[in-house]
């Protein structure tokens, strides 16, 4: 096996604008970005609420949430599979083996990461801003919004961590998506498939393309972030 061959293959794939590859890349981005947005819409308010509220058992919830950051993708995939299976409670939706199922599974996978990291960010900000915001008579939801917005640069990192996890995982999308050619085949399941076929150069080539895409997205957000940071202090 030859790294040079892998790089050549990767370059060939990119330069060739292979229609199938473009479809796979597009689906991967669609699934992972949608999952991350879904997870952020739930996870950011959830993290803020956990940071700002006090109730019995809160410590246990925080520990559990932190532990769930390491949820095995296969387990999440299996759970979502059972949920979405025809024989399962959400079976009638007919979501199994569709991108929708993959989005759901990845959102579940990413939610604890976003919620746990944003809880930490908001809790730290609360230590700094708490007195001032109470002095300004902010209501709890106003505090949450203010701190989420003021923590936006750190939270982008949390969301990116979630995106990285979603884009990189294979176990969950393999199970609930089924790696169906042209329908639910993503970068990672395609890599797994090519590895299975023993075409290691193609698999690694696809992997390089995936890494390049993730790096490009991170780079773009980083550039956007530093620009925004310069203008917001």
């Amino acid at each position: 096996m030859d790294l040079v061959a892998a790089f050549t293959t990767a370059l060939g794939l990119v330069a060739g604008f292979d229609a199938e590859l473009l479809g796979i890349v597009r689906l991967s981005l669609l699934v992972s970005l949608s999952a991350v947005i879904l997870a952020a819409l739930v996870g950011l308010p959830l993290g803020a609420a956990l940071a700002l509220s006090r109730f019995p058992g809160r410590g246990a919830v925080v520990v559990l949430l932190n532990a769930f950051m390491g949820l095995p993708p296969v387990v999440v995939g299996l759970g979502v599979y059972i949920l979405l299976s025809r024989a399962g409670p959400l079976g009638p939706l007919g979501l199994l083996f569709t991108p929708g199922a993959m989005i759901l599974a990845q959102a579940v996978l990413v939610l604890p990461i976003i919620a746990a990291l944003s809880r930490q960010v908001v809790a730290d900000l609360w230590d700094e801003y708490g007195e001032q915001l109470r002095s300004l008579n902010a209501r709890p939801w106003q505090v949450a919004l203010t701190l989420l917005w003021d923590g936006r640069f750190s939270l982008v990192t949390a969301v990116l961590a979630g995106f990285g996890r979603a884009a990189a995982e294979v176990g969950a999308v393999m199970i609930v998506g089924g790696n169906i050619k042209g329908v639910t085949r993503t970068m990672t399941t395609a890599i797994a498939l090519e590895t299975s076929k023993g075409d290691l150069a193609l698999a690694l080539g696809l992997g390089l393309v995936l890494i390049a895409i993730i790096a490009a997205i991170n780079g773009a957000l980083f550039a956007l972030g530093s620009w925004a940071k310069r203008s917001a202090g």
Binding site: L30, I37, G225
Partner: peptide, 17 residues
């Protein structure tokens, strides 16, 4: 930043599979 990410994602999400 959030608005731009959101916009990009919506475009992706609603483009027909």
């Amino acid at each position: 930043l959030r608005r731009m990410v959101l916009a990009a994602a919506l475009v992706l999400a609603f483009a027909p599979a």
